[in-house]
Amino acid sequence: MNIFRLSGDLSHLLAILLLLVKIWKTRSCAGISGKSQILFAIVYTTRYLDLFTSFVSVYNSFMKVVFLTASYGTLYLMFFKFKPTYDHNHDSFRILYLIIPSLVLSFIIVHVYTVMEILWTYSIYLEAVAIMPQLFMVSRTGEAETITSHYLFALGSYRALYILNWIYRYYTEDFLDMIVIIAGIVQTILYCDFFYLYITKVLKGKRLSLP
């Protein structure tokens, strides 16, 4: 554990909780991509199956349980409790275009051929692109609520902070996992456009709207 990793985890946690609280408080999931949330639920489920097979620390297990619970809680709010507020017309990204290639890639580029390892690798590849339906939705509607922008910023910052963590771990522990590092860089690059808009608009008190 180092400061970059911890900041990344807290940023990730903040993002997930921010989204849950926003939906709960406003009684609405307008502007949120249900498809991205489905992908994140798949990501957490396939990655955190190791809750049952390996124990790292109380911190790790606790966070995994929180991420899983919050993710499925978000899906419940979006697709059951506040379903009438779900803006499915604008959530038109084809997620099979992300699910299938990630799955194929996790069979081609993987460290060890075991079920758990392939599922873990799949979760890494899928997470890298899971935000695409949400970014696509923002580009289609041309705007995002401020709280949604904060959510996206926190979620994007998490992997960027993990990159600093991997650089730190490379020098201090000789840690080098190219699968997670390359996927993490791709994931962060996808947010760059949004980061620019967030810094130039949202932080100056303006709504995030596209030209």
Partner: peptide, 10 residues
């Protein structure tokens, strides 16, 4: 988890 692999991360 082996600290040399990413499995100790979230």
């Amino acid at each position: 988890g082996n600290p040399k692999d990413g499995k100790d991360e979230l």
